[in-house]
């Protein structure tokens, strides 16, 4: 459910970048966009999945 009127979400957990190595057959690429790193990959059914984070990228 959504937070109440004065309730603030505690500090984000899991703020690290994606920790799991994508499936071997998935095409992946990392690039920078503004202050963020973008990891491009695909889900098992072929749909695009983009993960934006502050993890340093090798580009």
């Amino acid at each position: 459910m959504t937070s109440g009127p004065h309730e603030r979400t505690p500090p984000e957990r899991g703020d690290g970048a994606a920790e799991r190595t994508p499936e071997p057959e998935a095409e992946t690429a990392r690039e920078r966009f503004g202050p963020l790193t973008l990891l491009r990959t695909r889900k098992a059914d072929g749909r695009a999945l983009l993960l934006f984070s502050h993890e340093e990228a090798e580009v």
């Binding site: 899991g14 994606a18 920790e19 799991r20 994508p22 983009l50 993960l51 934006f52």
Partner: peptide
């Protein structure tokens, strides 16, 4: 939600993430 190790895979197959974007199922 993120995918919990050992749990059923969600739309985001990672145990944590910051912001995720994906094609709508």
């Amino acid at each position: 939600d993120p995918t919990v190790p050992g749990g059923a895979e969600t739309e985001i197959p990672f145990p944590s993430f910051e912001i995720a974007v994906f094609d709508n199922r």
